[in-house]
């Protein structure tokens, strides 16, 4: 017996909705398009827990392992984040006001990222400055690693940290994306 694909889609959509209603989906995720490519957004009942460039299997595996295996595709909990990101990419938003679930951030990472969140839209800081400010002046490299491990990029603006002297340094999502975000914020001159 064959089952039509529209019937299948309806059944799956209905299930995902009831699962979310009944609080059974510990992690929900969705994808959205953006000028820097598709973004994967994932949230728990506490808030956005993960943003990743591209939907990749290993990101979902990691969420299953580190948060809960009850990971389901469902856009609902992510609507506010998606809306604010759309506004940000459209140049109509300079800061985010969405609850975040910071459980994937380690202790040192938390110090680094909390400092990074205080760098305003349109500004940048150097790895060395961040290291100095969190009381670990010799840990610029560790700061770089912590920024690279930022589980919630764009919303936690790790792209605003550069090398002393202004060269871009590194970025988890690749330097093209970092450049794009900094140009969007007016922190880097747009090329051409």
């Amino acid at each position: 017996m064959t089952v039509s694909s529209s019937r299948m889609r309806d059944a799956v959509a209905r299930f995902s909705e009831s699962a979310a209603d009944q609080g059974l989906a510990d992690v929900t995720y969705t994808t959205m398009d953006s000028p820097i490519g598709p973004l994967l957004l994932a949230a728990t009942d506490r808030g956005v827990v993960r943003i990743h460039f591209e939907e990749e299997e290993w990101v979902l595996d990691e969420l299953a392992r580190r948060v809960s295996p009850r990971v389901l595709r469902s856009p609902r909990r992510l609507d506010p984040a998606r809306r604010q990101l759309d506004e940000y990419f459209a140049g109509r938003r300079r800061s985010f006001s969405i609850p975040l679930d910071r459980r994937l951030i380690g202790q040192f990472g938390e110090r680094v990222l909390a400092r990074t969140e205080r760098i305003p839209f349109g500004s940048v800081a150097a790895y060395n400055d961040v290291a100095w400010d969190i009381g670990a002046p010799r840990a610029a490299r560790a700061v770089g690693n912590a920024l690279g491990a930022n589980p919630i990029p764009v919303v936690i603006p790790c792209h605003r940290v550069l090398r002393t002297g202004g060269s871009l340094g590194g970025y988890g999502g690749g330097l093209d994306r970092k450049r794009y975000l900094l140009q969007l914020e007016g922190a880097l001159p747009t090329a051409g």
Binding site: M1, M8, S16, D61, A64, R65, V71
Partner: peptide, 25 residues
């Protein structure tokens, strides 16, 4: 319990057709 399990969505993607077909029959 719970360790090493794939994301639940993975099961849904892989087996929703099997389950619906089985139940329909």
């Amino acid at each position: 319990p719970g360790t090493g399990l794939p994301p639940f969505q993975h099961l849904l993607d892989l087996y929703c057709a099997d389950v619906l077909r089985f139940l329909t029959r």
